[in-house]
Design a protein around this nucleic acid. Sequence first.
DNA 1: GTCTATATGACGATAGAC
DNA 2: GTCTATCGTCATATAGAC
Lengths: 201, 201
Amino acid sequence: MTVNSERISSGERREQILVAATEVFGQYGYVGATTDRVARAAGISQPYVVRLFGTKEQLFIEALRYTLAKLLAAFRAAIAEQPADGRAVERAMESRLGEAYVELVADRGLLLTLLHGFMMGSEPVIGPVARDGFMQVYRMLRDEAGFTPDQAHRFLADGMLINTLLASGLALQLSADAGAAELFSCTFGDKLRTVLDHAAA
Amino acid sequence: MTVNSERISSGERREQILVAATEVFGQYGYVGATTDRVARAAGISQPYVVRLFGTKEQLFIEALRYTLAKLLAAFRAAIAEQPADGRAVERAMESRLGEAYVELVADRGLLLTLLHGFMMGSEPVIGPVARDGFMQVYRMLRDEAGFTPDQAHRFLADGMLINTLLASGLALQLSADAGAAELFSCTFGDKLRTVLDHAAA
DNA sequence: GTCTATATGACGATAGAC
DNA sequence: GTCTATCGTCATATAGAC
């Protein structure tokens, strides 16, 4: 088989497009993102994006499902994580999950696609997908990570504050704003290094 | 002077338009909202909205500033609140501020305009306004309400979770989802009644 | 202070070829 | 599996009258 000019399967194309869509939806929001920009980011033509996903709304829903699946997979991995070295102190569950989350939402496209989804609760077809994903996360924390309801609540609350701090770009003015530095320190704790590393990039 | 057909001052018009804009931006997002819809909600023509605010971006910025001012005013009032009746037990500061917040963001237009602002951190002119507003809130909690940095952090984190729960519409499926009910109970505590009352409306 | 008319430029989706 | 061409719609902003 030829290597580059080969026609690839629609399954692979769909995945390529979803990656591009997550980035574009994250950057421009649901309405501001255009199927044309998604197409160019994926290296194909605009009508083909529409052909494969039907409508822009369907494309967004698939992209949202895709990011939610990534989030759940990251949490599942963190829950199952065991130190390879027996001597290593096993970090607490909450610490592992928190670190996994901060790593994940360092991808701005993923973070903002997620947030746009949560904010579209009144959309008849997108809303249910977002709510369902959110509650799946809650149940995973409670039933698989073993959190109490209040532990899960506090973990999620911190997560939503992390979202806001990162989305608003406050990380970029930490050196100029002592209050922001104080708030970041409280919010991220030992995850602060991770955030600063990603913010620099 | 005539009463209804009187030409009103541009200052009054601006305020009318800002109220309409907050509602429309909240419902459709920054890009999805049109100056025409804002105009119709305010009962005037589309070009006149542009005339008074210059551009749609400027209109959004003014609407965002307007909602941030409302938020700060509500917190300032809650901080200053004293029981009129001496016998009444003064509620804790945190409880008063929490209640004020839930009352405020029961207005979906206000809530979503705020959230859209926070999510637009990478926009060169909107981003700074949003970040500035957020940090003003933080400083008010710390310096005027007397919160420690960690108290302020936890209050804000809860606030951001409240935003997500309300924006995503989870309040509407509380009766059908035991997990959601559990999470709402942890998150809102004694503010739960307030939320349910507003959700019903 | 406020309107109508309109220039100008997208965007989503369809038709149909290869 | 993928493209080019294009239709219909709608949005921001300007011009200029009243």
